[in-house]
Every structure is written in structure tokens, then in C-alpha cells.
């Protein structure tokens, strides 16, 4: 069953075309990676899908409904959650409270929201962070919190924007386990933007590659990692070197 269908999506910022005629679809239960060099338009694509940006042209169909004209909160209420690449916690919410805000989308009861939040925190192994202020946590932990918050809204589709950026190898392992748990155990369809190739290769079923706002390739992780066009545009020497060093 098709959960998300993006048709000829284009997004202009003035003269800049950040997303250029992008089309793809996602089946329910998939775990898809979105990669591409800096400025390729990955975050913009998430912003368009989640309704934070109005698209210039094209159509987005989610769960059988055309969500193109909907506002962000309306899209969210239909079961599409996301995290943010850059997240500034300006307020004074604790981790638990933050996750509760997500849970409040489906319930007005505080006790139910709290119970749900605690369950999610436990499932993501960050229950011990409950009472910290989000703003006083290191970036790595903040990202897992925003992931937990998004999950709190009980989404059908979760968009993760670079949740593993800047993490050390142990932390990457942990977040990878969390992503798998969210997908396998909680049954949430996931699309993730990631520069950490190891994660993309290990957890995703399918990868979409953007470059200069265009979709240049799509396929399973192995075929993407050997695709000459992708290597030229993005993976380049860096990835080849990484592969070699991890092999040796």
C-alpha cells in the first residue's frame, strides 16, 4: 500500500530551485534513506512534505489524501511526524514534558499523555533523561528526544532529519537501534536524511539521492553505493576511503 506519493514537486526560493521536479513514493512499512551533498534540498523536501513550506508546484499525497494545500499542523494530525536538523530549545520543557507535547496530539488527558511519554522514553532507552531540561542536554541526546517527541504523536510516517549527525560511533549504534526499534517494533514507516553512510547502508531498504535539487538516483543501498553518478556527486573519495579503511 502506498503511504506517501510525491509527484513532480518543485520548490523555488526566489531564483533558487531547491527542489526540482522530484517524484517518488513510499510503501507502508518501508525504511527509506534520503542522501545528497550539502544544499541538495533534502531538508527543503521534508519541509514541503510536512507542510512548513508551501510548494511551488507538484502534489503530495499522503495515505490517499492530497495534503499539498494543508498547513503543517493539519499534516501532522493526519499522522506525519518529523524531527528537525537544527533544533533550538528556547523554552524550559523537560524531556518528559517535551515528549508529552507530542502525545497530547492524540489525547487531552495529562495522565494518559504522561504514561504514553514514559513508555516511549523507555522504549528508546532514554528514560533516565526524563527530568533534564531539553536545552541542557548535549546535541546527541536532544536529537533522540525530538525523535521520541515526534513518535509521541503516534505517526504513520516519521521523517528524521540527520538524527545521527555529529555523534560518536557508540551513539550512532544506539540511535541506529532506536530507528530499527521504531520501524520494526512500533510499525512506523520511516524516511531519514543522513550523512552517516554507515547508518544509511545498514538500516534502510531503499535510498533516494538528491543533487542540486534533483533526484539523481534511487535504489537499494548496495546499488546506490556503487552507482557512478552517486559516487561522483556525493559519496566521492570520502566514502571509498571509508570503505577501504573499514575493510582494512
Amino acid at each position: 500500500m502506498t503511504l506517501l506519493e510525491v509527484q513532480h514537486l518543485t520548490k523555488n526560493f526566489g531564483g533558487l530551485t531547491a527542489n526540482d521536479d522530484i517524484s517518488f513514493h513510499m510503501e507502508k512499512g518501508e525504511l527509506v534513506g534520503l542522501i545528497g551533498p550539502n544544499g541538495a534540498g533534502k531538508t527543503t523536501l521534508f519541509n514541503c512534505i510536512s507542510g512548513l513550506h508551501a510548494v511551488t508546484s507538484g502534489r503530495i499525497v499522503f495515505d490517499g489524501e492530497d495534503i499539498t494545500p494543508l498547513k503543517a499542523h493539519e499534516v501532522a494530525r493526519r499522522g506525519l511526524a518529523r524531527t528537525f536538523q537544527v533544533y533550538v530549545a528556547a523554552g524550559d520543557l523537560t524531556v518528559e514534558e517535551n515528549v508529552m507535547v507530542g502525545c497530547f496530539m492524540k489525547t487531552a488527558s495529562r495522565s494518559r499523555a504522561r504514561a504514553h511519554a514514559d513508555q516511549i522514553l523507555r522504549e528508546l532507552n532514554i528514560r533516565d533523561l526524563s527530568d533534564y531540561m531539553v536545552s541542557e542536554l548535549p546535541v546527541a541526546a536532544q536529537k533522540r528526544v525530538t525523535m521520541a517527541t515526534a513518535i509521541g504523536s503516534d505517526p504513520k510516517l516519521l521523517l528524521l532529519d540527520e538524527v545521527a549527525a555529529g555523534l560518536n560511533p557508540n551513539e550512532v549504534e544506539a540511535i541506529m537501534a532506536s530507528i530499527r526499534h521504531v520501524h520494526d517494533e512500533m510499525g512506523i514507516t520511516v524516511m531519514l536524511i543522513e550523512h552517516v553512510m554507515e547508518l544509511v547502508m545498514k538500516v534502510t531498504h531503499r535510498v533516494i539521492v538528491l543533487d542540486y535539487g534533483r533526484k539523481i538516483a534511487e535504489g537499494d543501498p548496495e546499488s546506490i553505493s556503487t552507482n557512478p553518478q552517486v559516487i561522483k556527486a556525493y559519496l566521492g573519495e570520502r566514502y571509498v576511503k571509508e570503505q577501504r579503511s573499514s575493510a582494512g
Partner: peptide, 19 residues
């Protein structure tokens, strides 16, 4: 709770279904 989330980060609040 929603208000505190708005104070925290409005885009985040929107993406959690808050009008």
C-alpha cells in the same frame, strides 16, 4: 503544554499538530 512548546520552538510545535 502546547503553549510551552510554542515558546520553545514554533515550527516544532506546528509539526506536532498544534495550531
Amino acid at each position: 503544554y502546547q503553549l510551552r512548546s510554542i515558546k520553545d520552538n514554533e515550527d516544532m510545535a506546528r509539526s506536532l499538530g498544534i495550531n
